[in-house]
């Protein structure tokens, strides 16, 4: 087990370096965008004097490297600065919205992961049957359609025609959990449809891959029923790639939902990132991107640890 702790520490260290590099790239990218914050905030109506006064007020008239290192120095001590536009602390502005994003991702994951694995096992069991084909076609169709299109289809039928669930997913603190789950059902369902196919097909593929191995042949020969061969003998060995795909999809649920947020008017972090990029609000962009990057790094780490734990050969290397 000591090895795992070592791996985790090493990976976390590498993760920090990755974050540093990402922060430089993001800063550079925002700097390279045409126009700046003053122009974005004051709009078409601004005169040169306005713009100069505005830049001076926010310290934007200083050289880019100075501004970056100042931000970095504060960020290292845990202070991510204030939003340049609203002058409120970034953590305050992002906190609630990030919570909403996590809530929605968790909601979708709770539905999507069990369904995907269950379906994956079933289609592996009945591989090449009509059921297999239908499940594949359906999930591949849903993953191939853009999220906003799926969202609109769901709104049209489930919300406008059948009036089952609300189309606008606005949630606030006063709501009970049930109300929230009801309000956010459609966006969660959209995301489920988008991620299920990937996980299901990976489960199917890695199980079928193992079905040709001699130990499965052995199990069959000794008379184990087909479903038991899959659930007890192949699935434990198939976990590693499946866990990796699950982790990737969880990360996607957190970082890739801007379109879903827009369609359902869900107050998550994606919309905030888009807003702050268009306003060139660097501290907010930076904080959002770093949160996304950290999500990927942590989930990847979790996936690797997970696959080691489920594989005795990796757990006890020679």
């Amino acid at each position: 087990m000591g090895d795992i702790a070592g791996i985790v520490l090493k990976r976390l260290g590498l993760g920090l370096i990755t974050l540093l590099v990402i922060s430089i790239i993001i800063f550079g990218a925002v700097e390279f965008l045409p126009g700046d914050l003053a122009q974005a905030v004051l709009g078409q109506g601004a005169t040169e004097e306005n713009l100069a006064a505005f830049r001076k007020q926010l310290g934007l008239d200083r050289a880019a490297p100075i501004r970056y290192f100042e931000w970095l120095g504060n960020a290292v001590t845990g202070d991510f600065g204030n939003s340049l536009v609203s002058q409120k602390p970034v953590s305050e502005a992002i906190g609630e919205r990030f919570g909403n994003t996590l809530f929605l991702a968790l909601y979708a994951a709770c539905i999507a992961v069990p369904i995907a694995i269950f379906l994956g096992v079933l289609v592996a069991l009945y591989r090449n049957s009509v059921f297999d084909r239908v499940a594949n076609v359906m999930t591949l169709t849903s993953i191939s359609s853009p999220e906003f299109f799926l969202g609109y289809i769901l709104i049209l039928f489930i919300s406008v025609k059948w009036e089952m669930f609300p189309a606008i997913a606005k949630i606030d603190d006063g709501m009970t959990l049930m109300e929230k789950l009801n309000r956010t059902f459609l966006p969660a369902l959209t995301m489920v449809l988008v991620v299920v196919a990937h996980m299901m097909r990976m489960t199917r593929a890695s199980i079928i891959n193992l079905l040709a191995s001699p130990y499965v042949e052995m199990a069959r020969l000794k008379g184990v029923p087909a479903w038991k061969v899959i659930v007890k003998h192949t699935l434990p060995n198939a976990w590693a790639p499946v866990i990796n795909v699950i982790a990737m999809n969880l990360a996607y649920l957190i970082t890739g939902v801007v379109l879903v947020e827009v369609v359902f008017v869900y107050p998550g972090i994606g919309q905030m990132l888009v807003d702050s990029v268009s306003k060139r609000d660097f501290p907010v962009v930076q904080a959002c991107c770093l949160i996304f990057a950290a999500t990927f790094i942590l989930l990847n780490l979790a996936a690797d640890v997970g696959s080691i734990l489920t594989n005795p050969r990796l757990r006890h290397p020679k």
Binding site: I155, S159, V160, A167, I168, V262, V263, F264, V265, Q271
Partner: peptide
């Protein structure tokens, strides 16, 4: 409601 479709759906529903 920044998305035009979301606006219209909200009015209809």
């Amino acid at each position: 409601l920044n998305d035009p479709n979301a606006r219209q759906t909200a009015l209809i529903t």
